[in-house]
Design a binder for these strands. Sequence first.
DNA 1: CCTCAAACCGTAAGCGCTTACAGTTTCTGG
DNA 2: CCAGAAACTGTAAGCGCTTACGGTTTGAGG
Lengths: 357, 357
Amino acid sequence: MTTDPPARVLTIYDVAERAGVSIASVSRVLNGHRSRPDTQDRVLAAVRELGFVPSGTARALSGQLKEVVAVVFRRAADSPDGVISDEDESLMFADVLNRGIETGARARGFDLLMSSVDVYDHSPQGRISSLAGKSDGLILHDKVLSAVGITRVARRTPVVTLAGTATEASVNVRSDNAFGMRELTRHLVREHGYQTLAYLAGHVDSPDNVARTEALELVAAESGAEVWTGEIWRGNYLASGGAAVINRVLDHDLPLPNAIVCSNDQTAIGVMFALAQRGIRVPDDIAVTGFDDIPVARHLHSQLTTVRQPIKKLGATAFDALYALITGAPRPEPELVLPTELVVRGSCGCPWEGEPA
Amino acid sequence: MTTDPPARVLTIYDVAERAGVSIASVSRVLNGHRSRPDTQDRVLAAVRELGFVPSGTARALSGQLKEVVAVVFRRAADSPDGVISDEDESLMFADVLNRGIETGARARGFDLLMSSVDVYDHSPQGRISSLAGKSDGLILHDKVLSAVGITRVARRTPVVTLAGTATEASVNVRSDNAFGMRELTRHLVREHGYQTLAYLAGHVDSPDNVARTEALELVAAESGAEVWTGEIWRGNYLASGGAAVINRVLDHDLPLPNAIVCSNDQTAIGVMFALAQRGIRVPDDIAVTGFDDIPVARHLHSQLTTVRQPIKKLGATAFDALYALITGAPRPEPELVLPTELVVRGSCGCPWEGEPA
DNA sequence: CCTCAAACCGTAAGCGCTTACAGTTTCTGG
DNA sequence: CCAGAAACTGTAAGCGCTTACGGTTTGAGG
């Protein structure tokens, strides 16, 4: 344990002086280039004694990697009045995804620059450009930027999108929505014999939502089951959205289907909550399913039958793809697709005793 | 909509040339210093036409703020074999906290540099120093750095800790653990008449855990109730830890108390899960309580009685304090304490029908 | 129309680092 | 012991920006 260094922030010059060499030598040692063993020792000793840490900023300025990738996601805004809403809930899928990205980044010594975009914000171009200036590359969650926006920024900096669409310059990572949804639908229709399925949609134009709807309708059609998808069943991937739909349906005395297929787990949480408040039991009165298999899905009341996406792995894969882009490694496929899997628990009506998945 | 700019990354020189002024003028306009209206117009026009975005790196190098604060948190490591564990669950309290920080940061145009520290990593000094070089200040979650470590880094850069301990140079933000725990304990002992309470601890030496234990023991003693806190009841703030304790207790045929007071909600989730697997019903056979009121607490099977911390607000407050430190505004109090509140739901044994909190 | 202050602008230095280039030292072989 | 190659080191330029400083323009007042 050495004495504490002075408060002024150290530069490479201080180290050079202390070690009796030039700043170039210090830089070389720090970056692992060849140099004589004794030079190396002196520099390292000086660094240790001084507690020197190179300025990431300066390093980045002179053409090095910043070892930072920016992650941009949409955020459910807090209540417009500026008060922090504690009915906040958007914290699930995106967070797990971010954890996955973090895991990948950690392995390469990268840090993550996180930035959310308000749902109200319709032209986040500026913010995103500014992030590009502070990072080596960008990971964009779903619905952050339009395709042309992505193309434009991808021309200037490496970009990977999550559950979006690949462009000429960017790579997209997603999971196999169609497969999972087909399995789920078959289970509901064939095993349970449900004849009417409502699809409680997410953002209608998100690629994930589109793929899920299509797979559902396809399989249902094959099996002669009915799919309800009207305006009224339109959600927004959030629990509040799911609850709102149910309340609307019930307030208007509209009929309920045999099963409500939710666009994601969060929506299902909202749905089950709203149903419970109205005294409608899941799965006795109606089946509910999710999509994603977020960690809490198994702890819910009526444990959720859902489709598992390898969420963390999606994140990690996104980072790895971006890393390849950044370092100029062989370019990854423009679209990376990870497998999904049906997870049957209790909420679809299957007997279920609360075993771990 | 203009045509797409060339792929080379633009500098202030390009803008200056285009506008027919010097780079100094461009810089001044960009930073809102006085200049003649027509100069201003020409610069702004050039910026717009070119789609110029100043390099955050260069700006930071020349003595400006980076508009980045780093957030460091402990992360439950993935399984040691490197495979991503999908029984991941640490994603709750810390994530909400981060959301709060994000909210505060967003309001000031700051971005967050997120970095996790492995539970195995016992000397994260290096990583943290490096983060300090990339940011204007640091927010450290609980258990990231020792007090002396904090003191050292706080001498060089602004630091705010969450649920930690204030040092001469750093500010700490926490919530009023003692108050919440006193309320909860009174409720359990006085309203329900429970005579034996087990405290399922978090990290034994974390300030939060200490405060909670003390408050519990104090109130219980006043009321003549018994508190169990032995080695066997030691958890780790994680669901898996809570479940492990229950399994251990039951495997050894040890007695159960009237109520299990968990150090946080995550632990309670694990506890309820393990109890359910053994066929022990909550609250009929035993009461369980949490602490934090994370968003899913209300969706759990047997909705959780807990103590609400204003989690997002804690985060936002931490950011604001750090911002004050960074900008040299009047120094905040060394310790900022936010209020807590008892939230009674069903898991303590109260009648409860699933209304929203 | 001229003077002088006020307002604005451009030049250039500097932020802390990397690296090309050229100079110096070391080592090999004759 | 010396020449020449090999290995290393130091000098200096440059990354893109901000800003002090001094020069230039503008405009008010006489």
